[in-house]
Simulated scan of single mutants.
Amino acid sequence: MRYESTGAARSALRIIEGGLSQVRQAPLAGVRPTSALWWGGMAANLLSAAVLMLRGRQESTTLGPINAVSHWAYGKEALQQDDATLRHTATGAAIHAGSSLFWAALYDFVVVKPLLRRQPVASEPMAAAAPLLVGAAAVATVAAAVDLKLVPERLTPGFQHRLSNTSLVLTYAAFGVGLAVGGLLQLRGRR
């Protein structure tokens, strides 16, 4: 099972990498292809959802952690839902995506935009990339603290009831990587 997860992760990264190479060629109407908010939010959403499902498959059920997010709308019954349903799976995925965009907006506003104002064109890309990566890790850490410790139980992500602490760390790490993708794309667009 461990090797399947590694292979699945590699496949997901190849798909994301291939998709990101197309970003500059086929932008969505009204969305800048290098927007940290949009691409970072979507990458954070997809990567963390992939980890939720992979770890869920190992620890409970594949969709259990995604379904658990729908407890915002449907209460405690969502925490026990294992099967794919429009009510729980679609709602959980939508709430997770919206939350990802919220944290990506914070990352864009607090980390990416100020950095790019100070360093509009980086002569050394790695010098500008490092603060973007550190900022993404910081925002992911803040998101974890807020999601798991500071908000009322009804507003927690819910998946913490279905996964181990190790899986939670991996989920928020993947989330941070997704945020960093958005920042790095925006940096790439400025070069």
Rank of each mutant, 00 (worst) to 15 (best):
G64L: 10
S48Q: 10
L63T: 11
S60I: 07
S60V: 11
S48M: 11
G40K: 11
R32D: 15
L47A: 11
T61G: 05
N45H: 14
W39C: 03
T61L: 02
Q58L: 12
V31K: 10
L54D: 08
A43C: 12
T34A: 14
A68F: 07
G41N: 09
L63K: 04
A50N: 01
R55E: 14
R55C: 08
Q58V: 05
Q58I: 06
L54V: 09
L63R: 05
E59M: 01
G41F: 00
N45S: 13
R32T: 15
I66P: 03
S35D: 15
W38T: 13
V51W: 04
G56T: 06
V51P: 00
G56E: 07
W39F: 10
E59T: 00
A50V: 05
S35G: 12
W38Y: 14
P65Q: 02
L52V: 01
R32Q: 14
L54R: 07
V31I: 15
S35L: 07
S35P: 13
W39G: 10
V31M: 13
P33D: 09
P33N: 08
T34G: 15
L52P: 00
S60N: 13
P65Y: 00
A50K: 02
T34S: 15
A49M: 11
L52D: 03
N67C: 05
N67E: 04
S48W: 01
N45M: 09
A36P: 14
G56L: 03
A49I: 08
L37S: 04
G41P: 04
T62D: 06
A44E: 03
L46W: 15
P33W: 14
A50I: 04
G64W: 05
G41L: 02
R55G: 06
S60W: 12
P65I: 04
A50H: 04
R32Y: 13
I66K: 00
L46S: 12
R55S: 04
L47E: 09
W38E: 08
P65N: 04
G40D: 09
N45Y: 15
V31W: 08
W39A: 11
S48A: 11
V51Q: 03
V51T: 11
R57Q: 11
T61F: 05
N67S: 12
S48L: 02
T34N: 14
Q58Y: 02
R55H: 07
W39I: 12
A43D: 03
M42V: 15
A68V: 11
G64F: 00
A44V: 02
P33T: 11
S48G: 04
L52H: 02
L54Y: 03
L47I: 10
L46D: 05
S60P: 06
A43G: 09
L46I: 12
R32C: 09
N45R: 04
V31R: 02
L47H: 06
G30Q: 01
R57W: 05
G40T: 08
S35I: 05
T34F: 10
N67W: 05
A44C: 05
S35K: 06
